[in-house]
Design a protein around this nucleic acid. Structure first.
Lengths: 335, 335
DNA sequence: AGACAATTTGCAAACGCTTACAACGTTAAT
DNA sequence: ATTAACGTTGTAAGCGTTTGCAAATTGTCT
C-alpha cells in the first residue's frame, strides 16, 4: 500500500462518465442532480475512496470552514473551558479550529491574527485580557469577522461575550463585606489590564462605596496568575491587616488559603476568601473555595455561535453579550 | 475602509514590473534573485500590504504548514500540557495547529482523522489511551505522517512518545509496599484501555510479584476520570480493607484523599496515596499528593519534533521514544 | 406532434500560488 | 571576438475545486 495520492473529483467524474460539475454538485448536496446519476456518483465516490480536497475547495470557494482561536494558554483551565465551548459549537457547524497560544504577548497576538488571516480563516475568536491598539488594528484589518470571548475592548466595535465583571466583583466584595469585614483585600492581575485589572478594581470600589468604606490602596495587590504567587502575596495581605480577600484567579486563591492556614488561622472563621473563575479546583480543596460563578463553557459556545452568524452575514441581535454570573458560596466564606 | 479583498501576488508583480515567479521567489526566500529587484519587490509588498494566500500556496505546493492534533479533551490538564508542548514546537517550525477534541470516542476520532486528511494537514499528532482498529486503519490510510503522544499502539508501527508506564506504576506501587502495606488498592481507567488499564495493572502486578504478595482482584477499581469518581470509589477502597492506593488520575486521587480524611483517617499515617499525572493540582492540596512525575510538556514537544522530521522525510533515530519519569514524593506518602 | 418550460448536465473560467523549463543577459575564459 | 557558463527572469502548466452560463435533455400542455 504505497502512498497513492488520493482520488480527485476528476477520477470520480471520469469513472461515472459525467462532468466535474456534476460530481461537485452531489458532493455539495446541490439539488439539481437527477437521483439516478446521484447514486452512481455516490457509488463511485465510495469505491474510489474519494475525499474532497479542502484546500482546493477553499481556493475556489473562498471559504475554508476553519476558524482561528487566539488564546493566552491552553493550559489555563479557565481558557481551556472556553475553548471547549468554542470547539463543540464549531464542530456542530462543521468548522475546524486553528488554535494559537499567545501568553498574552501583544506581539504574538498580532502575529497570530496575521497568520490566521493569511490562512484565510472564515472567522476568529479572540481571548485575552487586554487588547492593545496594534492588535486591535490587525484584527480589524483582517478580512474576517471576529468575536471576543472573555475579553473586552473599550470602544465596543467588536462583538464580544463576557459576564458583567464589575458587577460580579462588586457582589463578591459585598458578600464578604456583609460579614462585617472592614479591611478586605483585593488581588488583581496587571492593573492596566481591562478585565483582570480595571474592572476588578472598579467592582471592588463600587462595593466599598455602597458600604461607605473608604478605599485604601494598601489593600490592593497585583500578582501573577499561579499558585506560588498566591503563597507569596498572602503574607503581604496579612501584613496589611486584611481579614478577607477577593481574588481574580483560583490558583492564587488556593495559594492564599494554604498560606493562611499554615499560619494557624482558620478559614473562614478568621479569614474569608472569594475567587473569580470557579474552576474545578475550587471544589477539590478543603475547604472548598467560594467563587463567582462564570458560565465559562457557554461564553465560548455563545461566542462561537455568534461567529457563525457573522460568517453567514447575519446581523446579531446583540453584539455585546453579557452572560449571567452567580456567586457559588462554599467553604471559604461564612454564609 | 471597505472589505477590500487583499492584494495578490499578481498585483505585486505588476507594480514592480516583474513576473509572478520573481515575486514568488522573493517571498519564499529563494536566492536566485538579484538584490536590487528583491528590494523593489519587498517595497511593493510593503506598500500593498500583500500577504501570501496560504490556501493557494497549499494547493500549489501540496504543503499546508498545518498539522492536526487529535486529543481527548483540552479541558483535561494532562492533555492540555501535552498540547502546549506540541504547540510551542509547532510554532518554532512555523506550523499551525488544527485542534480536535474527541472525548476518546472512536467514532469521533475516526472522523477527526479523516477530516484532517481532507484538510491536507502535513502531519498528525494523536493522543488518547486506546487506539481502536478502525481508528488505526484510518490513521494509516491518511496520507500524512503520524506521531502518537501519550498513546500506545500494540504493533509499534507508529512513532510514539511515552514514558514507561508499566515501570512507573511498578515503582509507585513498590514505594508504598516498602512502607509495609499488605493491601494496596489500584485504581485504573477502563481495564481494556492500554495505558490507563492494562499497563497500570501490569505494573502493579509486577510490583506485587517482586514483593511476593499475591494479586487480589478485590483491590482493583475502575473509575471515571474525575473528582466525584474519586469520592465514590474511596468508600469501596476502604471497605476492601486497603491501606494505600495507587491511582491513575490526579482528580480521582484528590477525591479519594478528601473522602478518607473526612472519615477521620490521617494521611499519610493511616492511608497512603500515589497518583500518576503530576498535574498542578497535586501541589495545591493539603497534603500535597505524591505522584509519578511525567514530563508532560516534553512528551508533546518531542512528539512534535519527531513529526517535523517525519514531514521532512528524515528517518527517526528512535521511533518508540520513552521519556524518563520520576517519583515525586510529597505529603500523601511516608517517605 | 410541436412549442415551451423546467430540469439536468457540461464547459470553461476562475481561485492565487509554485515550479519546471526556457530564455535572456552577463561575465569570463579562450 | 566567440563561446561556454552562469545568474537572473519570464512563461505557462498545473494544483483540485466551485460556479455562472450555455447546452442538452426531459416533461408538459395544447
Amino acid at each position: 500500500m504505497k502512498k497513492k495520492s488520493s482520488a480527485t473529483i476528476y477520477d470520480v467524474a471520469h469513472r461515472v462518465g459525467v462532468s466535474l460539475a456534476t460530481v461537485s454538485r452531489v458532493v455539495n448536496g446541490n439539488s439539481n442532480v437527477r437521483d439516478s446519476t446521484k447514486q452512481k456518483v455516490l457509488e463511485a465516490i465510495e469505491e474510489l475512496g474519494y475525499h474532497p480536497n479542502a484546500v482546493a475547495r477553499g481556493l475556489a470557494s473562498k471559504k475554508t470552514t476553519t476558524i482561528g482561536v487566539v488564546m493566552p494558554d491552553v493550559t489555563d483551565v479557565y481558557y481551556s473551558e472556553l475553548a471547549r465551548g468554542i470547539d463543540d459549537v464549531a464542530n456542530m457547524y462543521h468548522y475546524d479550529v486553528l488554535l494559537t497560544n499567545t501568553d498574552e504577548d501583544p506581539v504574538r497576538e498580532t502575529m497570530a491574527v496575521n497568520n490566521l488571516a493569511s490562512k484565510q480563516v472564515d472567522g476568529i475568536i479572540f481571548m485575552g485580557n487586554d487588547l492593545e491598539r496594534e492588535v486591535l488594528n490587525t484584527i480589524s484589518s483582517a478580512n474576517a469577522p471576529v468575536v471576543l470571548a472573555g475579553s473586552v475592548e473599550g470602544e465596543g466595535r467588536l462583538a464580544s461575550v463576557n459576564i458583567d465583571y464589575i458587577e460580579a466583583v462588586k457582589e463578591a466584595t459585598e458578600a464578604v463585606l456583609k460579614n462585617g469585614h472592614k479591611r478586605v483585600a483585593i488581588v488583581t492581575g496587571p492593573i492596566t489590564h481591562a478585565i483582570n485589572g480595571l474592572y476588578r478594581l472598579a467592582g471592588y470600589k463600587k462595593a466599598l462605596e455602597a458600604n461607605q468604606i473608604e478605599y485604601d490602596d494598601t489593600l490592593l495587590f497585583t500578582t501573577h496568575q499561579d499558585y506560588n504567587a498566591g503563597l507569596q502575596v498572602a503574607q503581604k495581605i496579612l501584613a496589611a491587616g486584611a481579614t478577607a480577600v477577593v481574588t481574580y484567579d483560583d490558583e492564587v486563591a488556593v495559594g492564599i488559603m494554604n498560606y493562611i492556614r499554615d499560619q494557624g488561622k482558620r478559614i473562614p472563621e478568621d479569614f474569608e476568601i472569594i475567587t473569580s473563575n470557579d474552576t474545578k479546583l475550587t471544589i477539590m480543596t478543603r475547604p472548598q473555595v467560594t467563587s463567582i460563578g462564570q458560565p465559562k463553557y457557554d461564553i465560548g459556545a455563545v461566542a462561537m455561535r455568534m461567529l457563525t452568524k457573522l460568517m453567514n452575514n447575519e446581523v446579531l441581535d446583540e453584539s455585546q453579550v453579557k452572560l449571567p454570573h452567580t456567586l457559588e458560596r462554599r467553604g471559604t466564606t461564612i454564609n
